[in-house]
Design a protein around this nucleic acid. Structure first.
Length: 289
DNA sequence: ATCATATGCTAAT
DNA sequence: TTAGCCTATGATA
């Protein structure tokens, strides 16, 4: 579930549904009980996201959340009925909505220096407006120095914040980049294209709570954003259902052995650094442009 | 029922 | 490079 677009959408959703209210905070599962008691009853001033990190400001206290690989943070209208599910690590109850956090990698109260340290380690975030103009230069500073492959570098949050395995594989395909190209061997313009594309793709992913990389879907989504009809979508999404506005289609992600839409070669997969890289050996040969 | 895998990341080796 | 963590889901038996 969680790449940067998910976390930014979540922050926005928390602000819409629980922002400004006094929140009943608890830990049904128990593991966060003592900290939950400290926050309980305080007002949620602001939720914010950077890369894959989420921060919830309650008065002078900051809660740091990172979903990791399997974490979920469901925000739904309060409903006394409905299935209970496994007990949440953290539960936030407002007047109209409830948020339930399960399986996070990080859920902890942090002080300001700690928050600053987290932010300082992150590279430019395509969804953080101030990073957009400088992002290609900042990313390039690390990429152009590195002997690591561009596939590995795109997963490094110090290079770009918010990109995960799906965006990595898909953006490399979109620019026909050989994923095994070392950073120092990658052409600058090719990286600039990637950054620019991420600046387009992540906001669309955020708006629709779904990773969109197929050009027909990207174009349709962009048009809906441009003419304002995505606002209605966002409201619909803010109800409950996420990520099923477009059908789920990717160029390479989880398509091992299938024929590439563009060239017909079989999509390949390889475990690299503990993560599965998917790519098309026919299309992805570029190192320079 | 059980198993493998997952859109992450860190610490230990 | 590997083990480990946390939970849900889809495939397999």
């Amino acid at each position: 579930m969680p790449e940067g677009h998910t976390i930014h959408a979540l922050a926005a959703r928390l602000n819409r549904t629980l922002g400004g209210e006094a929140i009943s905070v608890s830990s049904p599962q128990g593991r966060f009980a003592s900290d939950a008691a400290v926050i309980d009853g305080r007002r949620l001033d602001q939720a914010s996201a950077r890369g894959k990190h989420l921060f919830l400001d309650f008065d002078d206290l900051t809660l740091h959340v990172h979903l990791g690989l399997i974490g979920t943070f469901h925000v739904k209208p309060r409903d006394p009925l409905g299935p209970a599910g496994t007990p949440a690590r953290l539960q936030l109850e407002g007047r109209r909505y409830v948020a339930e956090l399960r399986g996070p990698m990080i859920c902890a109260l942090v002080d300001e220096p700690t928050r600053a340290a987290v932010l300082a380690k992150l590279g430019p975030d395509p969804l953080h407006a101030p990073d957009v103009p400088s992002g290609s230069e900042r990313g390039w500073e690390r990429i152009s120095m590195s002997r690591k492959t561009i596939a590995e570098l795109l997963m490094d949050q110090a290079v770009v914040a918010g990109v995960g395995n799906v965006y990595r594989c898909e953006v490399l395909f979109r620019h026909r980049i050989d994923p095994f190209t070392r950073g120092r061997d990658l052409g600058r313009r090719l990286w600039d294209d990637v950054w620019e594309d991420l600046v387009t793709l992540l906001p669309l992913g955020m708006a629709f709570s779904q990773i969109l990389t197929m050009q027909d879907q990207v174009a349709a989504a962009a048009e809906m954003v441009a003419d304002g009809s995505s606002l209605a979508i966002t409201e619909t999404l803010s109800g409950e259902r996420l990520g099923d506005h477009f059908d789920r289609r990717f160029h390479t992600y989880k398509r091992t052995g299938e024929a590439c839409d563009r060239c017909g070669r079989r999509i390949r997969a390889e475990l690299i650094g503990g993560r599965t890289l998917y790519w098309c050996p026919g299309c992805q040969r570029r190192r320079k442009r």
